[in-house]
Simulated assay, not measured.
Amino acid sequence: MASNTVTPVPSDGVDSARTPDSSVDADAGADGTDDVVEDVVDDPTDQVPRPDDVTRRLALLWDPPAPPTRGRKARLTLAEVVEAGTAVAQEVGLEALSMRRVAARLGVGAMSLYTYVPGRTELVDLMIDRAFGELDLPPADAPWREGLSRYAREVWHLYQRHPWILQTNMWRLPLSPHVLDAQEAGLRTLVDTGLPADQVVEILGLVDAFVRGLARAAVAETVENDASGMSSDEYWTSMSSFWADWFDVERYPVMTRIWEAGGFDTPTDPFDASLDRLLDGVEMTIDRAREQD
Rank of each mutant, 00 (worst) to 15 (best):
A26Q: 10
A220N: 07
V48F: 08
V282I: 15
L97W: 03
V9K: 14
M127K: 07
G107W: 00
W243D: 06
W236I: 09
E122C: 07
L113H: 06
L148C: 13
R56F: 00
N4G: 04
D46G: 00
S23L: 05
D25S: 13
P68F: 10
D42R: 14
K73M: 03
A96L: 10
R161H: 15
G13H: 02
I286T: 12
T5P: 02
A182Q: 05
D34K: 09
A84T: 04
G186D: 03
V102K: 08
D31S: 08
A30R: 09
I203F: 11
G263C: 04
W246Y: 03
E80T: 06
R70V: 14
F264A: 12
R288C: 03
P270R: 05
R188P: 01
S112L: 15
T237Q: 12
R257S: 14
L113K: 08
V108D: 06
V6T: 02
V6Y: 05
E221G: 14
Q47K: 10
D233W: 10
D39Y: 11
D248S: 13
V81I: 04
P64L: 03
T86Y: 00
G263W: 02
D25T: 05
R150V: 08
A131E: 09
R50A: 12
W156Q: 10
V117Y: 08
V223I: 15
R153S: 09
T266H: 04
A66T: 13
T285F: 11
V36K: 12
I128T: 09
F132T: 03
T55G: 06
R153N: 10
V40T: 07
F247L: 11
T86P: 12
V179Q: 03
W164A: 02
A289S: 14
V14I: 15
A215C: 01
E122G: 04
R216W: 01
I165P: 02
S240G: 07
E91T: 13
G133H: 06
K73N: 06
R161K: 15
D21E: 12
A261K: 10
P253Q: 07
V6M: 07
W62E: 06
T19M: 15
G205E: 02
S23N: 11
E91V: 10
V282Q: 01
V36Q: 14
Y252N: 08
M127G: 10
H157R: 04
P177I: 06
E95Y: 00
R18V: 13
E202G: 09
P67S: 11
D245M: 07
L206F: 11
P10R: 05
T168E: 01
R161T: 15
G109C: 14
W62V: 09
L187C: 03
S228W: 03
P270A: 08
R145T: 04
E224G: 08
